[in-house]
Amino acid sequence: MVLVLIAVTTLNNAWPAFRESGLSFVTSRQWIPNEGKFGALAFIYGTAVIAAIAVLLALPVSVGIALFVTEVAPARLRTMVVAVMDLLAGIPSVVFGLWGILVLAPNIAALYNWWSDLVEPIPLLTKLFDHTQTGRAFFTAGLILALMITPIITTITREVFATVPRNDKDGALALGATRWEMIKGVVFPHSIGGMVGATMLGLGRAMGETIAVALVIGSTPQIVANVFAGGDAMPAVIANQFGEATGVHRSALIGLGVTLFALTIIVNVSARTVVRRVDVRLRGLA
């Protein structure tokens, strides 16, 4: 009962602040609080970019770990992998951020520039991976986020892989398939829906993550293709500016929160729907 109440009041309370900010809120890229200009496009762009980087990095790793646990690892190692994932999930995000800003960011700029040199001759890639002066960038934020969402995606995909019927797997092996061919032919087709759902849950988490991103993204609202440049994201700007904001600036930040809220709800609800549909299908088969 209480839950419903809370969900409703959240929307109710944030709604007026959003109306106040006007329509250009999501279409303008100008965010100059002193002149009363509030266009959140750069932040929305930043959130999208780092969430995309995080998912692109985390998905293969997570699926790899989940397969490792269900198909490859010996039983003793299996519990160890699960423990490592639990530890990773248990580290507070502010600690990730602290590590990111003090250890990762100062050292990774050199790596970024080395990579930029490497892809210089390739026209499209050099736009995407241009030189940089700082390690506080889109990519660093994406990297940290990837670490944070890996346990989530891994846990769910592992559960989905565990539901693949033993008979199907044994059947493939009996036909002479190697383990990899069995995984490709049996495990993946069976669990594609669950993998999509897990990815979207990870995406939702990545979009809403605040503190780690606020520390490493560089707080420079801009829309550039270079992922090694500094940027800014919706939750990060709320965390960084809310303390000194007043009046319209403050309600614009709350409006930003509402936008974020709406986006994550859309992502999460569709993820749950996908997962649930897969659930129903599997139960229907059994």
């Binding site: 849950l201 809403g208 992502v267 999460n268």
Partner: peptide, 14 residues
């Protein structure tokens, strides 16, 4: 389910 997906900073704003 929806509540568990709400970003923590949005809870703070709320």
């Amino acid at each position: 389910d929806v509540m568990s997906g709400v970003p923590s900073i949005v809870m703070g704003l709320f």
